[in-house]
Amino acid sequence: MSSKISIYTVLYILLISCNGVKEKPNLVLSNYASSEHLIEAKELVRIFKDENIKIVDFRNPKNYKNGHIYGSLNIWRTDVSDSSYPYEGMRSDKENIELFFGKIGISNDDLIVVYDDKGSSDAARLWCLLTYYDFKSVKILNGGLKSWESIGGKLSTKPISYPPTQFYLPEKRSEKLWIDKDELIGLITNESKNIILIDTRSSEEYSGSLIKKGASKAGRIATSIHTDWAEAVDLEGNKKFKSIEELQKVYKGVEMSAKDTVVVYCHTGYRSSLTTFVLTELMGFENVRNYDGSWVEWSYFDELPYEKDSIIL
């Protein structure tokens, strides 16, 4: 038996004995359109001993050091961002992601389970990024760190490391979940294209009464509709995704069908990644695009149309 398998077996036994999980836990049971990329804490306990599981704590390094799921790697926003732009938050390119994932020991045959402590908005960004590059073996831990703690899951303050690997993303990518500034401008200015543009930020950001760090001005992209990302999550409770019935109520006011072209954005593409996950995975919308640059990029260019306090500027 390899040392790695031995370690995982010990970890599994520790988790079971500490948590009191004696029966085989249920998978995600729901009437979501799909729960393929969603995993519950009890199911994570069951598969924890699998040699090809990599758990990713997608929080800033300080929070990671204060306590994380035992055995989890730490990845933060700056690790998967391109810093060459004059504004922050843009996704890293394929080659740099491959180099970084290989450096921290993630393999192509690994299942990545990602979590955060914010209601999965950061975790969804990593899911969205990897899905864009057609790497699909990734799941979001429903409820994040809170759900793990709620079942008595073991935490650690010690970082973990794995031997470096050769990690490769698929040669071809569908790019179906992402949209850049120029393509969005083309959709907005093309009268024959009927798109629904959703601003997933807070109501204060949407109205222009609040400007977050990194934005060049306050406001929103012209013609966008507001639906706060947090409405899809029990943010004040268990931090899990709401039921399909509750989600349908959240988006009831947005007149869109499953086949409509829907573009979502936020400040830097993180909160809108969660909305992308909700609409595509949980609700079954077929053509949802996450605007990577979001408001930070759009606000940088003075010539682009925006609104503030219901006045077109």
Rank of each mutant, 00 (worst) to 15 (best):
K22C: 06
K240P: 12
S147F: 03
T165E: 10
S150T: 13
K54V: 15
G214T: 00
R271M: 09
E303A: 09
L14H: 11
P164F: 04
V28Y: 06
K94A: 10
F58S: 04
I69W: 03
S207F: 14
R173W: 10
D79K: 07
Q248M: 11
K154R: 13
S243C: 02
L282Q: 04
E40F: 10
L126I: 15
A230Q: 07
L99G: 04
T268A: 12
Y270A: 13
K212L: 15
V233N: 04
D93E: 13
K181C: 13
I39S: 08
D182R: 12
F101M: 03
I69A: 01
F241N: 06
I7L: 06
S202K: 05
Q248K: 14
D122T: 03
I196V: 15
D292F: 01
V80G: 02
Y12H: 14
T268P: 04
G284P: 02
T157A: 08
V263M: 11
E191S: 07
V80D: 00
E149G: 05
S192M: 12
R173C: 12
K249I: 04
P61Q: 06
Y270K: 15
T131I: 11
S273D: 03
D82M: 02
Y12M: 07
G253R: 09
L274Q: 07
A232N: 12
K212W: 05
V113H: 01
I97S: 04
K54R: 15
E95F: 11
D309P: 01
S257D: 12
W295C: 08
W148D: 07
T189K: 15
E149P: 00
K176N: 11
G144P: 02
G284N: 10
W295I: 01
T131V: 12
P305R: 01
G67S: 05
I211V: 10
G237K: 08
S121A: 15
F167K: 02
I244G: 06
S2R: 14
K181Q: 13
V10P: 00
I140K: 00
S84Q: 03
I7F: 14
T165P: 02
F101H: 00
D57K: 00
I211Y: 01
S3L: 13
